[in-house]
């Protein structure tokens, strides 16, 4: 039988990856770290049961997505609506990301954004994304398709590609 993972080892090894996913969902490194820490706290609470199972990273990602969706619901009630989403803090790096595309990504509804991040950043399949989000594969496909349509509209016609139907073949 394989060695069961130690909680601390898992924390050290995976916190960066989980935070990256959280950042792509929320667009704020501070909130991303809070969400990541909260996800590990949840895991710690259930560690007695979780430690015997596969898919611990999937659990973390699922938790962080759900925490973030909860957070968006809370913020929806307390935040002031503005004409344009405010720019969130971005740390300049050697390779500047496409700010327009990231802004477009952040304008997506939470579920669509989660589908895009999980599919194209975490490289999860449609089935894995559906399992993680607790919905059907068809929902993932339709949400992803709508998200890509929205992103394409923001990016302009230069990236229109007929290969978008690839997902439907999965």
């Amino acid at each position: 039988m394989a060695q069961r993972p130690q909680f601390q080892d898992l924390y050290v090894a995976r916190r960066g990856a989980v935070r990256a996913t959280a950042y792509l969902l929320c667009g704020d490194w501070h909130l991303a770290e809070d969400l990541t820490q909260a996800a590990f706290v949840r895991m710690y609470q259930r560690w007695g049961r979780l430690q015997h199972r596969d898919g611990l990273e999937a659990y973390l990602h699922r938790t962080v997505v759900r925490l973030w969706i909860d957070e968006t619901r809370r913020r929806r009630h307390r935040d002031t609506l503005v004409a344009e989403p405010p720019e969130t803090q971005e740390h300049a790096g050697p390779a500047r990301p496409d700010p327009g595309l990231l802004r477009a990504l952040r304008r997506l509804p939470p579920r669509q954004r989660a589908c895009v991040v999980l599919r194209y950043f975490n490289d999860l399949s449609v089935a894995q994304t559906a399992e993680l989000l607790g919905c059907t594969a068809g929902t993932v496909k339709s949400q992803t398709s709508r998200a890509l349509d929205a992103l394409r509209a923001h990016l302009g016609a230069d990236v229109v590609d007929a290969a978008e139907t690839k997902e439907n073949s999965e």
């Binding site: 950042y23 792509l24 990301p97 496409d98 990231l102 950043f121 990236v159």
Partner: peptide, 28 residues
Amino acid sequence: SGVETRVRHAMEQAVSAAPAYTGTYDDV
């Protein structure tokens, strides 16, 4: 597709300049 490729690339770039992780194991 083109959109997928650009989305993936943009996301990878966005997280490549991540700030230091300040939370600690003890906090958890």
